[in-house]
């Protein structure tokens, strides 16, 4: 039984409250109409399936019902971190020991600014 930390509820809760929703950080093609069959097929069906560190999307289905990301080892099943959608992971395949907190925090500030910019663009 996993104990999963929900970054919105800020609590560890049991696995049964959550649902796994597949690989995290999949960017929808910016212009789907312009995709070739190859690109669209890759986007729809091809997923990372690593032995080791994996970033996945979970939903706190019977809690706050929010989606968030989890970094988990697919062999030992150890959960390394939970983080909100739009944030970057600390633990990656290249950095299994974890990157410095400050680097990740700085990246997240930039990412958030980009999201705001994109949303403003949509509104305009």
């Amino acid at each position: 039984m996993f104990l999963i930390y929900c970054p919105y509820c800020e609590e560890h809760r049991e696995e049964e409250e959550f649902h796994p929703k597949g690989q995290a950080h999949i960017a929808r093609p910016a212009d789907p109409e312009a995709c070739s069959d190859k690109e669209w097929g890759d986007y729809l069906f091809f997923r990372d399936n690593p032995r080791g560190i994996h970033h996945e999307l979970w939903v706190h289905a019977v809690g706050c019902r929010k989606f968030f990301n989890v970094t988990r080892n697919t062999v030992s099943y150890e959960i390394l971190e939970s983080y909100r959608v739009g944030e970057q992971p600390r633990f990656t395949a290249e950095h299994p020991e974890g990157r410095p907190v400050e680097t990740v925090a700085a990246e997240n500030v930039t990412a958030k600014a980009e999201v705001v910019e994109r949303q403003e663009g949509v509104k305009a």
């Binding site: 039984m1 996993f2 696995e15 049964e16 649902h19 796994p20 399936n49 032995r51 994996h54 996945e56 988990r72 697919t74 062999v75 030992s76 099943y77």
Partner: peptide
């Protein structure tokens, strides 16, 4: 189990 895994064991739920 809904999540990816190579652990050759299943979850209790």
């Amino acid at each position: 189990d809904g999540y990816n895994g190579y652990g050759q064991r299943g979850s209790y739920p």
